[in-house]
Computed example of a mutant assay.
Amino acid sequence: MFDIFDFLTYLNTHGKDTTYSKIIIFLLTRTEEIPALTISEIADRCFVSPATLTRFGRHFHFASFADLRDALQQLNSLTPYSGLRMNEKDFQLLQKDPKAYLTSYSEEITASIQDVLGTIDIEEIDQLLHRIHTASEVVLIGYSATLELAKEVQTSFLSSRKILYIGETEQLQKDLIEHLDEQALIIVISSYGTLLTKNPALIRTISQSSADSIFITQNTKNTLTNQFTQTIRVTKENYVQIGSYPLTFFFDYFTRRYVSLYD
């Protein structure tokens, strides 16, 4: 399944002057032109060969460049606000009355934080922190916004001399997981469970690992959570518009609590 984040991750980790980065920049900035261009015409615009474009598509798991073109066309059909977790009603409110929209947005954030306060079990969290403290290794898995959140958690734990490991690519994640023993721990962070459906191969690798796995999420009905040793939901309700605010608030407490127990 195509995800624009895959392109951005490549761009952010390889720089803008590599061959594939130049192709990505062209494709993302000329999406309206792509449907009318042949693979040879796109190759000419990117100063590469058609064969390079084919290899590019396969690198990002497309069976053919035609499949990549179709995915980009679907991306082009999305509204500008759809990637911002907004519906048309919210978007119109923001256009007409920004103050009212901001008030509504802040109220949802406040409600989500109160939900976290009423949902999390302090004793359960302390038990997990103890498992992290005694684990031979701990691997954090995140995607997009939760990958960045995992990095913040990694940095915070380092202040207590506890190193948590993060793979920023799918292959690095698999390599880390495959070398874990039964004393290790895998913590998967996902706001809405998107990671479970986006990368089933990674989830299979986690479920087959000797290490225990903990899935930490906002409220989700995803049935694939049964692939994990334990699932911790930090809210009872879903808060689509505000993204990962509840998880960010939760992990802020989570890391501070660890320091208070084990520093």
Score class of each variant (00 low, 15 high):
M1A: 08
F2Q: 04
F2C: 01
D3R: 07
D6K: 13
D6R: 06
D6N: 11
N12W: 10
T13I: 06
K16Y: 06
K16E: 15
S21Y: 02
I25Y: 08
L27A: 04
T29Y: 13
T29W: 08
I34L: 03
A36T: 12
T38W: 12
T38S: 13
S40F: 11
S40I: 13
E41H: 08
I42L: 02
I42T: 05
A43C: 09
C46G: 01
C46Q: 07
S49W: 15
P50R: 13
T52Q: 12
L53A: 03
G57A: 15
G57E: 06
G57C: 06
R58N: 10
R58A: 05
R58H: 09
H59G: 02
F60S: 02
H61E: 11
F62Q: 06
F62N: 00
R69M: 15
R69Y: 11
D70I: 13
D70W: 04
Q74K: 15
S77C: 11
T79M: 14
P80N: 12
P80I: 13
Y81Q: 04
G83D: 12
D90I: 06
L94C: 02
L102H: 09
E107K: 15
I109N: 03
A111V: 03
S112I: 05
I113W: 10
Q114D: 12
V116A: 06
G118H: 08
D121Q: 11
I122F: 15
I125W: 11
D126S: 10
Q127C: 10
L128C: 03
R131F: 03
I132P: 05
I132K: 02
A145E: 08
L147H: 00
K151Y: 06
V153H: 05
Q154W: 02
T155S: 12
S156M: 09
F157M: 04
I166G: 00
E168A: 05
E168W: 02
Q171N: 05
Q173H: 02
Q173K: 07
K174E: 10
K174L: 13
K174V: 15
I177D: 01
L180T: 02
D181F: 00
Q183W: 00
A184L: 03
L185N: 07
I187N: 00
I187Y: 05
V188H: 01
Y192F: 14
G193F: 02
A201C: 07
L202R: 02
I206T: 02
I206G: 01
S209H: 05
A211R: 00
A211Y: 00
S213I: 08
F215I: 06
T217D: 05
Q218W: 04
Q218L: 14
K221T: 10
L224N: 08
T225E: 12
N226I: 15
F228W: 01
Q230K: 14
Q230H: 07
T231R: 04
I232N: 13
R233S: 13
N238E: 15
Q241L: 14
I242K: 02
I242Y: 04
P246K: 08
T248M: 14
F251S: 08
D252Y: 04
D252L: 10
Y253K: 15
F254Y: 09
F254R: 10
F254H: 12
V259H: 15
L261C: 06
L261E: 11
L261P: 03
Y262Q: 06
